[in-house]
Write a protein that binds this DNA or RNA. Structure first.
Lengths: 249, 249
DNA sequence: ACCTGAACACCGTTCAAGT
DNA sequence: ACCTGAACACCGTTCAAGT
Protein backbone atom coordinates (compact mmCIF):
# COMPACT_ATOMS: atom_id res chain seq x y z
CA UNK A 1 0.00 0.00 0.00
CA UNK A 2 2.64 2.49 -0.91
CA UNK A 3 0.15 3.95 -3.35
CA UNK A 4 -0.29 7.60 -2.45
CA UNK A 5 -3.72 8.42 -1.04
CA UNK A 6 -6.37 9.82 -3.36
CA UNK A 7 -6.05 13.17 -1.75
CA UNK A 8 -2.37 13.54 -2.39
CA UNK A 9 -2.17 11.89 -5.78
CA UNK A 10 -0.47 14.39 -8.04
CA UNK A 11 -2.28 14.49 -11.34
CA UNK A 12 -0.23 13.01 -14.15
CA UNK A 13 0.99 15.67 -16.48
CA UNK A 14 -1.33 16.28 -19.38
CA UNK A 15 -0.28 16.17 -23.01
CA UNK A 16 0.61 19.37 -24.76
CA UNK A 17 -2.48 20.05 -26.81
CA UNK A 18 -4.91 18.59 -24.32
CA UNK A 19 -6.56 21.82 -23.15
CA UNK A 20 -7.95 24.69 -25.12
CA UNK A 21 -9.52 28.04 -24.42
CA UNK A 22 -12.84 26.67 -25.62
CA UNK A 23 -12.69 23.76 -23.24
CA UNK A 24 -11.90 26.01 -20.30
CA UNK A 25 -14.65 28.42 -21.27
CA UNK A 26 -17.12 25.58 -21.58
CA UNK A 27 -16.15 24.12 -18.24
CA UNK A 28 -16.38 27.49 -16.54
CA UNK A 29 -19.78 28.16 -18.04
CA UNK A 30 -21.02 24.75 -16.99
CA UNK A 31 -19.69 25.03 -13.47
CA UNK A 32 -21.22 28.47 -13.01
CA UNK A 33 -24.45 27.28 -14.55
CA UNK A 34 -24.73 24.22 -12.31
CA UNK A 35 -23.77 26.00 -9.11
CA UNK A 36 -23.43 29.77 -9.35
CA UNK A 37 -21.06 32.41 -10.59
CA UNK A 38 -19.89 32.89 -7.02
CA UNK A 39 -18.91 29.24 -6.88
CA UNK A 40 -16.65 29.67 -9.89
CA UNK A 41 -13.09 29.97 -8.66
CA UNK A 42 -9.90 29.26 -10.52
CA UNK A 43 -8.96 26.29 -8.30
CA UNK A 44 -12.45 24.79 -8.55
CA UNK A 45 -12.44 25.19 -12.29
CA UNK A 46 -9.02 23.60 -12.61
CA UNK A 47 -10.13 20.69 -10.49
CA UNK A 48 -13.18 20.16 -12.65
CA UNK A 49 -11.12 20.23 -15.82
CA UNK A 50 -8.45 18.03 -14.25
CA UNK A 51 -5.84 20.63 -15.04
CA UNK A 52 -3.27 22.52 -13.03
CA UNK A 53 -4.69 25.79 -11.76
CA UNK A 54 -1.99 27.78 -13.40
CA UNK A 55 -2.59 26.21 -16.79
CA UNK A 56 -5.74 28.29 -17.11
CA UNK A 57 -3.59 31.40 -17.00
CA UNK A 58 -1.93 30.42 -20.22
CA UNK A 59 -5.25 30.83 -22.03
CA UNK A 60 -6.80 33.63 -19.99
CA UNK A 61 -4.67 36.40 -18.57
CA UNK A 62 -6.92 36.74 -15.54
CA UNK A 63 -10.21 35.63 -14.09
CA UNK A 64 -11.73 38.84 -15.36
CA UNK A 65 -10.76 38.01 -18.92
CA UNK A 66 -12.38 34.61 -18.49
CA UNK A 67 -15.54 36.26 -17.17
CA UNK A 68 -15.56 38.70 -20.07
CA UNK A 69 -15.43 35.81 -22.49
CA UNK A 70 -18.18 34.03 -20.58
CA UNK A 71 -20.25 37.18 -20.91
CA UNK A 72 -19.90 36.97 -24.68
CA UNK A 73 -21.31 33.47 -24.56
CA UNK A 74 -24.05 34.65 -22.24
CA UNK A 75 -24.97 37.52 -24.54
CA UNK A 76 -25.36 35.12 -27.44
CA UNK A 77 -27.57 32.88 -25.33
CA UNK A 78 -29.61 35.85 -24.16
CA UNK A 79 -30.11 36.89 -27.75
CA UNK A 80 -31.25 33.42 -28.74
CA UNK A 81 -33.91 33.30 -26.04
CA UNK A 82 -35.71 36.31 -27.46
CA UNK A 83 -38.75 36.02 -29.64
CA UNK A 84 -39.64 39.39 -31.04
CA UNK A 85 -43.26 40.11 -31.74
CA UNK A 86 -44.39 41.29 -35.15
CA UNK A 87 -47.10 43.56 -36.46
CA UNK A 88 -48.09 45.11 -33.18
CA UNK A 89 -48.25 48.73 -32.09
CA UNK A 90 -44.90 50.15 -31.03
CA UNK A 91 -45.87 50.33 -27.38
CA UNK A 92 -47.09 46.75 -27.34
CA UNK A 93 -43.82 45.75 -29.01
CA UNK A 94 -41.76 47.54 -26.40
CA UNK A 95 -43.88 46.18 -23.56
CA UNK A 96 -43.41 42.60 -24.76
CA UNK A 97 -39.71 43.15 -25.38
CA UNK A 98 -38.92 44.39 -21.88
CA UNK A 99 -41.18 41.89 -20.16
CA UNK A 100 -39.22 39.21 -21.95
CA UNK A 101 -35.96 40.97 -21.18
CA UNK A 102 -36.80 40.67 -17.51
CA UNK A 103 -38.20 37.15 -17.72
CA UNK A 104 -35.11 35.72 -19.40
CA UNK A 105 -32.78 37.17 -16.76
CA UNK A 106 -35.09 36.07 -14.00
CA UNK A 107 -35.14 32.50 -15.24
CA UNK A 108 -31.41 32.28 -15.84
CA UNK A 109 -29.32 33.45 -12.92
CA UNK A 110 -26.05 33.03 -14.75
CA UNK A 111 -27.10 35.30 -17.61
CA UNK A 112 -28.23 37.85 -15.06
CA UNK A 113 -24.98 37.64 -13.12
CA UNK A 114 -22.80 37.94 -16.20
CA UNK A 115 -24.70 40.56 -18.17
CA UNK A 116 -26.70 42.58 -15.65
CA UNK A 117 -24.83 42.36 -12.36
CA UNK A 118 -21.41 42.55 -13.96
CA UNK A 119 -22.37 45.57 -15.99
CA UNK A 120 -19.62 47.52 -17.63
CA UNK A 121 -17.80 47.63 -20.93
CA UNK A 122 -18.43 44.56 -23.09
CA UNK A 123 -16.07 42.85 -25.45
CA UNK A 124 -16.50 44.00 -29.06
CA UNK A 125 -18.27 40.74 -29.88
CA UNK A 126 -20.77 41.00 -27.02
CA UNK A 127 -21.22 44.65 -27.85
CA UNK A 128 -22.03 43.77 -31.44
CA UNK A 129 -24.74 41.28 -30.46
CA UNK A 130 -26.33 43.76 -28.07
CA UNK A 131 -26.17 46.62 -30.56
CA UNK A 132 -27.94 44.63 -33.25
CA UNK A 133 -30.75 43.66 -30.90
CA UNK A 134 -31.15 47.21 -29.64
CA UNK A 135 -31.17 48.54 -33.18
CA UNK A 136 -34.23 46.44 -33.98
CA UNK A 137 -36.18 48.00 -31.12
CA UNK A 138 -35.04 51.47 -32.10
CA UNK A 139 -36.24 50.78 -35.61
CA UNK A 140 -39.74 50.11 -34.31
CA UNK A 141 -39.69 53.34 -32.34
CA UNK A 142 -38.45 55.38 -35.26
CA UNK A 143 -41.15 53.89 -37.50
CA UNK A 144 -43.66 54.97 -34.86
CA UNK A 145 -42.51 58.56 -35.25
CA UNK A 146 -39.77 59.03 -32.66
CA UNK A 147 -36.56 60.65 -33.76
CA UNK A 148 -33.53 58.34 -33.58
CA UNK A 149 -32.22 60.24 -30.56
CA UNK A 150 -35.51 60.13 -28.68
CA UNK A 151 -35.80 56.44 -29.52
CA UNK A 152 -32.39 55.87 -28.01
CA UNK A 153 -33.35 57.76 -24.86
CA UNK A 154 -36.56 55.78 -24.64
CA UNK A 155 -34.66 52.52 -24.87
CA UNK A 156 -32.14 53.72 -22.34
CA UNK A 157 -34.79 54.63 -19.76
CA UNK A 158 -36.52 51.31 -20.01
CA UNK A 159 -33.28 49.37 -20.04
CA UNK A 160 -31.99 51.16 -16.95
CA UNK A 161 -35.30 50.66 -15.17
CA UNK A 162 -35.51 46.95 -15.97
CA UNK A 163 -31.87 46.28 -15.13
CA UNK A 164 -32.26 48.32 -11.95
CA UNK A 165 -35.22 46.18 -11.08
CA UNK A 166 -33.27 42.96 -11.68
CA UNK A 167 -30.32 44.26 -9.69
CA UNK A 168 -32.45 45.17 -6.70
CA UNK A 169 -34.38 41.93 -6.89
CA UNK A 170 -31.12 40.02 -6.74
CA UNK A 171 -30.01 41.96 -3.70
CA UNK A 172 -33.07 40.90 -1.76
CA UNK A 173 -32.89 37.36 -3.04
CA UNK A 174 -29.24 37.06 -2.03
CA UNK A 175 -30.06 38.17 1.48
CA UNK A 176 -31.89 34.89 1.96
CA UNK A 177 -34.58 36.62 3.92
CA UNK A 178 -37.89 36.65 2.09
CA UNK A 179 -39.22 40.08 1.42
CA UNK A 180 -40.38 42.03 4.44
CA UNK A 181 -43.71 41.03 5.92
CA UNK A 182 -46.04 42.61 3.37
CA UNK A 183 -48.07 44.55 5.82
CA UNK A 184 -46.52 45.69 9.04
CA UNK A 185 -43.30 46.52 7.24
CA UNK A 186 -43.61 50.03 8.58
CA UNK A 187 -45.99 49.17 11.37
CA UNK A 188 -43.79 50.24 14.23
CA UNK A 189 -42.30 53.34 12.63
CA UNK A 190 -43.71 56.45 14.29
CA UNK A 191 -44.76 59.57 12.43
CA UNK A 192 -45.80 57.88 9.21
CA UNK A 193 -48.96 58.91 7.42
CA UNK A 194 -49.17 57.61 3.87
CA UNK A 195 -47.12 54.43 4.33
CA UNK A 196 -49.51 53.25 6.99
CA UNK A 197 -52.60 53.95 4.92
CA UNK A 198 -51.81 51.85 1.87
CA UNK A 199 -54.70 49.67 0.84
CA UNK A 200 -52.57 47.01 -0.82
CA UNK A 201 -49.35 45.57 0.54
CA UNK A 202 -46.19 47.29 -0.66
CA UNK A 203 -42.70 46.32 0.33
CA UNK A 204 -39.48 48.20 0.91
CA UNK A 205 -37.86 46.09 -1.78
CA UNK A 206 -39.93 47.82 -4.48
CA UNK A 207 -39.41 44.89 -6.82
CA UNK A 208 -42.80 43.24 -6.84
CA UNK A 209 -44.55 42.22 -10.03
CA UNK A 210 -46.87 45.20 -9.61
CA UNK A 211 -43.96 47.58 -9.18
CA UNK A 212 -42.45 46.32 -12.40
CA UNK A 213 -45.66 46.59 -14.35
CA UNK A 214 -46.41 50.06 -13.03
CA UNK A 215 -42.97 51.29 -14.00
CA UNK A 216 -43.17 49.78 -17.44
CA UNK A 217 -46.64 51.13 -18.14
CA UNK A 218 -45.86 54.55 -16.75
CA UNK A 219 -42.81 54.85 -18.96
CA UNK A 220 -44.85 53.82 -21.97
CA UNK A 221 -47.49 56.38 -21.03
CA UNK A 222 -44.83 59.04 -20.84
CA UNK A 223 -43.48 58.06 -24.23
CA UNK A 224 -46.93 57.98 -25.81
CA UNK A 225 -47.58 61.52 -24.71
CA UNK A 226 -44.12 62.64 -25.71
CA UNK A 227 -44.82 61.33 -29.18
CA UNK A 228 -48.11 63.19 -29.22
CA UNK A 229 -46.49 66.40 -28.03
CA UNK A 230 -43.74 66.16 -30.63
CA UNK A 231 -46.38 65.70 -33.29
CA UNK A 232 -48.09 68.84 -31.97
CA UNK A 233 -51.02 66.98 -30.58
CA UNK A 234 -53.69 69.67 -30.30
CA UNK A 235 -55.37 68.22 -27.22
CA UNK A 236 -52.93 69.13 -24.50
CA UNK A 237 -51.07 72.36 -24.85
CA UNK A 238 -47.49 72.19 -23.60
CA UNK A 239 -48.41 70.48 -20.34
CA UNK A 240 -45.19 70.81 -18.38
CA UNK A 241 -47.06 70.66 -15.11
CA UNK A 242 -50.38 69.05 -14.43
CA UNK A 243 -51.89 72.30 -13.36
CA UNK A 244 -50.57 73.98 -16.50
CA UNK A 245 -52.30 71.49 -18.73
CA UNK A 246 -54.87 73.32 -20.73
CA UNK A 247 -57.70 71.10 -21.88
CA UNK A 248 -58.99 72.34 -25.18
CA UNK A 249 -62.70 72.10 -24.74
CA UNK B 1 19.52 44.61 20.16
CA UNK B 2 17.44 41.71 21.29
CA UNK B 3 14.42 43.92 20.72
CA UNK B 4 12.09 42.14 18.34
CA UNK B 5 11.82 43.80 14.93
CA UNK B 6 8.93 46.17 14.29
CA UNK B 7 7.37 43.65 12.00
CA UNK B 8 7.23 40.90 14.57
CA UNK B 9 6.44 42.97 17.64
CA UNK B 10 3.36 41.40 19.14
CA UNK B 11 0.98 44.12 20.23
CA UNK B 12 0.77 44.39 23.94
CA UNK B 13 -2.54 43.11 25.21
CA UNK B 14 -5.16 45.82 25.54
CA UNK B 15 -7.11 46.53 28.69
CA UNK B 16 -10.51 45.03 29.12
CA UNK B 17 -12.79 47.94 28.33
CA UNK B 18 -10.52 49.51 25.76
CA UNK B 19 -12.59 48.77 22.66
CA UNK B 20 -16.24 49.29 21.95
CA UNK B 21 -18.65 48.61 19.16
CA UNK B 22 -18.86 52.34 18.50
CA UNK B 23 -15.11 52.63 18.17
CA UNK B 24 -14.94 49.75 15.73
CA UNK B 25 -17.84 51.12 13.73
CA UNK B 26 -16.22 54.54 13.60
CA UNK B 27 -12.89 53.10 12.51
CA UNK B 28 -14.51 50.98 9.85
CA UNK B 29 -16.50 53.91 8.51
CA UNK B 30 -13.40 56.08 8.43
CA UNK B 31 -11.26 53.48 6.73
CA UNK B 32 -13.90 52.82 4.09
CA UNK B 33 -14.42 56.54 3.67
CA UNK B 34 -10.73 57.31 3.21
CA UNK B 35 -10.02 54.41 0.89
CA UNK B 36 -13.04 52.44 -0.27
CA UNK B 37 -15.46 49.84 0.94
CA UNK B 38 -13.46 47.25 -0.99
CA UNK B 39 -10.39 48.17 1.02
CA UNK B 40 -12.19 47.45 4.26
CA UNK B 41 -11.11 44.03 5.47
CA UNK B 42 -11.19 42.67 8.98
CA UNK B 43 -7.37 42.45 9.25
CA UNK B 44 -6.92 45.98 7.89
CA UNK B 45 -9.50 47.30 10.30
CA UNK B 46 -7.94 45.52 13.25
CA UNK B 47 -4.54 46.93 12.31
CA UNK B 48 -5.96 50.43 12.13
CA UNK B 49 -7.61 50.09 15.52
CA UNK B 50 -4.53 48.42 16.96
CA UNK B 51 -6.60 45.47 18.05
CA UNK B 52 -6.42 41.74 17.47
CA UNK B 53 -8.41 40.76 14.40
CA UNK B 54 -10.51 38.38 16.36
CA UNK B 55 -11.48 40.99 18.94
CA UNK B 56 -13.78 42.55 16.40
CA UNK B 57 -15.78 39.36 16.34
CA UNK B 58 -16.73 39.86 19.97
CA UNK B 59 -18.66 42.98 18.98
CA UNK B 60 -19.85 42.00 15.52
CA UNK B 61 -20.79 38.42 14.72
CA UNK B 62 -19.58 38.78 11.16
CA UNK B 63 -18.36 41.28 8.61
CA UNK B 64 -21.87 41.44 7.24
CA UNK B 65 -23.23 42.53 10.60
CA UNK B 66 -20.59 45.25 10.69
CA UNK B 67 -21.57 46.37 7.20
CA UNK B 68 -25.24 46.40 8.18
CA UNK B 69 -24.43 48.68 11.08
CA UNK B 70 -22.33 50.88 8.83
CA UNK B 71 -25.32 51.11 6.51
CA UNK B 72 -27.39 52.45 9.38
CA UNK B 73 -24.82 55.20 9.84
CA UNK B 74 -24.78 55.82 6.11
CA UNK B 75 -28.55 56.07 5.97
CA UNK B 76 -28.52 58.72 8.67
CA UNK B 77 -25.84 60.65 6.79
CA UNK B 78 -27.79 60.34 3.55
CA UNK B 79 -30.85 61.67 5.27
CA UNK B 80 -28.96 64.65 6.66
CA UNK B 81 -27.66 65.68 3.25
CA UNK B 82 -31.15 66.18 1.91
CA UNK B 83 -32.76 69.57 1.65
CA UNK B 84 -36.40 69.20 0.72
CA UNK B 85 -37.98 71.95 -1.28
CA UNK B 86 -41.13 73.65 -0.13
CA UNK B 87 -44.13 75.19 -1.79
CA UNK B 88 -43.53 73.88 -5.26
CA UNK B 89 -45.71 71.81 -7.55
CA UNK B 90 -45.61 68.07 -6.81
CA UNK B 91 -43.67 67.24 -9.95
CA UNK B 92 -41.08 69.92 -9.30
CA UNK B 93 -40.77 68.55 -5.75
CA UNK B 94 -40.22 65.01 -7.02
CA UNK B 95 -37.81 66.17 -9.69
CA UNK B 96 -35.69 68.03 -7.14
CA UNK B 97 -35.88 65.14 -4.70
CA UNK B 98 -34.56 62.51 -7.11
CA UNK B 99 -31.95 64.78 -8.64
CA UNK B 100 -30.65 65.29 -5.15
CA UNK B 101 -30.99 61.59 -4.41
CA UNK B 102 -28.65 60.89 -7.30
CA UNK B 103 -26.30 63.77 -6.58
CA UNK B 104 -25.70 62.74 -2.97
CA UNK B 105 -24.83 59.18 -3.94
CA UNK B 106 -22.67 60.38 -6.78
CA UNK B 107 -20.68 62.63 -4.52
CA UNK B 108 -20.25 60.08 -1.75
CA UNK B 109 -19.02 56.71 -2.94
CA UNK B 110 -19.28 55.11 0.47
CA UNK B 111 -22.94 56.01 0.84
CA UNK B 112 -23.57 54.62 -2.62
CA UNK B 113 -21.69 51.39 -1.87
CA UNK B 114 -23.45 50.80 1.43
CA UNK B 115 -26.98 51.84 0.55
CA UNK B 116 -27.34 51.39 -3.20
CA UNK B 117 -24.88 48.71 -4.22
CA UNK B 118 -25.43 46.59 -1.14
CA UNK B 119 -29.17 46.73 -1.56
CA UNK B 120 -31.23 44.32 0.46
CA UNK B 121 -33.00 44.18 3.77
CA UNK B 122 -32.06 47.03 6.08
CA UNK B 123 -31.78 46.98 9.84
CA UNK B 124 -34.94 48.22 11.58
CA UNK B 125 -33.18 51.50 12.37
CA UNK B 126 -32.06 52.14 8.80
CA UNK B 127 -35.46 51.07 7.61
CA UNK B 128 -37.11 53.59 9.93
CA UNK B 129 -35.02 56.48 8.62
CA UNK B 130 -35.75 55.56 5.02
CA UNK B 131 -39.47 55.07 5.66
CA UNK B 132 -39.85 58.50 7.22
CA UNK B 133 -38.13 60.19 4.31
CA UNK B 134 -40.18 58.28 1.76
CA UNK B 135 -43.37 59.09 3.63
CA UNK B 136 -42.74 62.80 3.17
CA UNK B 137 -42.53 62.40 -0.59
CA UNK B 138 -45.63 60.23 -0.63
CA UNK B 139 -47.45 62.91 1.30
CA UNK B 140 -46.71 65.43 -1.42
CA UNK B 141 -48.01 63.02 -4.06
CA UNK B 142 -51.17 62.27 -2.11
CA UNK B 143 -51.81 65.98 -1.63
CA UNK B 144 -51.49 66.34 -5.38
CA UNK B 145 -54.30 63.87 -5.88
CA UNK B 146 -52.61 60.49 -6.18
CA UNK B 147 -54.00 57.63 -4.14
CA UNK B 148 -51.60 56.32 -1.48
CA UNK B 149 -51.03 53.17 -3.52
CA UNK B 150 -50.34 55.00 -6.74
CA UNK B 151 -48.05 57.36 -4.87
CA UNK B 152 -46.11 54.37 -3.60
CA UNK B 153 -45.83 52.93 -7.11
CA UNK B 154 -44.70 56.30 -8.40
CA UNK B 155 -41.99 56.49 -5.77
CA UNK B 156 -40.95 52.93 -6.45
CA UNK B 157 -40.56 53.51 -10.19
CA UNK B 158 -38.40 56.55 -9.74
CA UNK B 159 -36.37 54.99 -6.96
CA UNK B 160 -35.66 51.87 -9.00
CA UNK B 161 -34.74 53.96 -12.03
CA UNK B 162 -32.39 56.24 -10.11
CA UNK B 163 -30.74 53.40 -8.21
CA UNK B 164 -30.46 51.43 -11.43
CA UNK B 165 -28.77 54.43 -12.96
CA UNK B 166 -26.32 54.69 -10.06
CA UNK B 167 -25.62 50.97 -10.15
CA UNK B 168 -24.85 50.97 -13.85
CA UNK B 169 -22.78 54.10 -13.59
CA UNK B 170 -20.67 52.45 -10.93
CA UNK B 171 -20.13 49.40 -13.12
CA UNK B 172 -18.64 51.51 -15.87
CA UNK B 173 -16.64 53.61 -13.46
CA UNK B 174 -15.18 50.52 -11.79
CA UNK B 175 -14.02 49.18 -15.13
CA UNK B 176 -11.50 51.99 -15.24
CA UNK B 177 -12.11 52.49 -18.90
CA UNK B 178 -13.82 55.77 -19.65
CA UNK B 179 -17.10 55.42 -21.43
CA UNK B 180 -16.96 54.17 -24.99
CA UNK B 181 -15.82 56.61 -27.64
CA UNK B 182 -18.98 58.70 -27.96
CA UNK B 183 -19.35 58.30 -31.65
CA UNK B 184 -18.02 55.23 -33.32
CA UNK B 185 -19.25 53.07 -30.47
CA UNK B 186 -21.18 51.08 -33.02
CA UNK B 187 -19.20 52.22 -36.02
CA UNK B 188 -17.91 48.83 -37.06
CA UNK B 189 -21.05 46.84 -36.35
CA UNK B 190 -22.70 45.76 -39.59
CA UNK B 191 -26.42 45.83 -40.25
CA UNK B 192 -27.23 48.76 -37.99
CA UNK B 193 -29.65 51.43 -39.10
CA UNK B 194 -30.85 53.65 -36.25
CA UNK B 195 -27.77 53.40 -34.06
CA UNK B 196 -25.64 54.75 -36.85
CA UNK B 197 -27.95 57.65 -37.58
CA UNK B 198 -28.04 59.29 -34.16
CA UNK B 199 -27.48 63.02 -34.35
CA UNK B 200 -26.07 63.32 -30.83
CA UNK B 201 -23.58 60.97 -29.22
CA UNK B 202 -25.12 58.17 -27.18
CA UNK B 203 -23.19 55.51 -25.36
CA UNK B 204 -23.73 51.88 -24.57
CA UNK B 205 -23.48 52.73 -20.89
CA UNK B 206 -26.79 54.60 -21.00
CA UNK B 207 -25.87 56.55 -17.91
CA UNK B 208 -25.17 60.00 -19.28
CA UNK B 209 -26.62 63.14 -17.76
CA UNK B 210 -29.05 63.31 -20.66
CA UNK B 211 -30.15 59.73 -20.14
CA UNK B 212 -30.88 60.47 -16.51
CA UNK B 213 -32.83 63.62 -17.25
CA UNK B 214 -34.84 62.00 -20.00
CA UNK B 215 -35.82 59.12 -17.76
CA UNK B 216 -36.75 61.41 -14.91
CA UNK B 217 -38.82 63.74 -17.09
CA UNK B 218 -40.49 60.92 -18.94
CA UNK B 219 -41.56 59.29 -15.70
CA UNK B 220 -42.94 62.59 -14.46
CA UNK B 221 -44.80 63.05 -17.73
CA UNK B 222 -46.30 59.60 -17.34
CA UNK B 223 -47.36 60.39 -13.79
CA UNK B 224 -48.84 63.74 -14.76
CA UNK B 225 -51.05 62.11 -17.35
CA UNK B 226 -51.93 59.29 -15.01
CA UNK B 227 -53.13 61.87 -12.53
CA UNK B 228 -55.17 63.55 -15.22
CA UNK B 229 -56.67 60.23 -16.30
CA UNK B 230 -57.57 59.27 -12.75
CA UNK B 231 -59.24 62.62 -12.22
CA UNK B 232 -61.29 61.90 -15.36
CA UNK B 233 -59.58 64.60 -17.30
CA UNK B 234 -62.02 65.23 -20.12
CA UNK B 235 -59.33 65.81 -22.70
CA UNK B 236 -57.99 62.29 -23.21
CA UNK B 237 -60.37 59.42 -22.78
CA UNK B 238 -58.80 56.28 -21.33
CA UNK B 239 -55.74 56.46 -23.51
CA UNK B 240 -54.19 53.04 -22.98
CA UNK B 241 -52.50 53.14 -26.35
CA UNK B 242 -51.54 56.13 -28.40
CA UNK B 243 -53.82 55.12 -31.21
CA UNK B 244 -56.66 54.64 -28.74
CA UNK B 245 -56.34 58.14 -27.44
CA UNK B 246 -59.47 60.02 -28.32
CA UNK B 247 -58.99 63.76 -28.46
CA UNK B 248 -62.19 65.43 -27.44
CA UNK B 249 -62.50 68.25 -29.87
C1' DA C 1 4.88 25.91 -26.81
C1' DC C 2 2.42 24.33 -23.34
C1' DC C 3 1.68 22.48 -18.62
C1' DT C 4 3.08 22.28 -13.73
C1' DG C 5 3.46 22.76 -8.26
C1' DA C 6 5.17 25.70 -4.88
C1' DA C 7 4.71 29.99 -3.06
C1' DC C 8 2.81 34.66 -2.11
C1' DA C 9 -0.17 37.83 -0.24
C1' DC C 10 -4.28 38.15 0.85
C1' DC C 11 -9.43 36.93 2.68
C1' DG C 12 -13.36 35.78 6.63
C1' DT C 13 -13.96 32.97 10.48
C1' DT C 14 -13.26 29.51 14.37
C1' DC C 15 -11.18 27.87 18.43
C1' DA C 16 -8.83 27.17 22.40
C1' DA C 17 -6.73 29.58 25.14
C1' DG C 18 -5.09 33.64 28.10
C1' DT C 19 -6.11 37.46 31.76
C1' DA D 1 -16.15 39.45 30.44
C1' DC D 2 -13.20 40.66 27.21
C1' DC D 3 -9.00 40.20 24.31
C1' DT D 4 -5.66 37.21 21.92
C1' DG D 5 -2.61 34.43 18.27
C1' DA D 6 -2.57 30.34 15.79
C1' DA D 7 -4.85 27.90 12.51
C1' DC D 8 -8.23 26.74 8.80
C1' DA D 9 -10.04 26.77 4.39
C1' DC D 10 -10.27 29.39 1.04
C1' DC D 11 -9.02 33.23 -2.84
C1' DG D 12 -6.35 35.20 -7.46
C1' DT D 13 -1.93 35.45 -9.30
C1' DT D 14 3.25 34.97 -10.13
C1' DC D 15 7.32 32.48 -10.93
C1' DA D 16 10.65 29.35 -11.90
C1' DA D 17 10.76 25.46 -13.47
C1' DG D 18 9.66 20.98 -16.11
C1' DT D 19 8.78 18.47 -20.77
Amino acid sequence: MSTPTRKNTPRKRRARGSISAEEILHGAYELASEESLDALSMPRLAQRLDVGVTSIYWYFRSKEELLDTMTEKAMAEFDRSFTLSQDVAWDEYVRTYFRQFRAVFRDNELLCDLIVMRSGPLTPEASRIAAQRIDLVLGVLVDAGFTPDTAMFAYSTLSVFVRGHLFLERGWAASGRPDLPPEGAFANVPGLSVLTSLSQPHTMAMVSEDDFEFGLENTLRGLRHLLAEEADEPCVVRARNAKDAVPVV
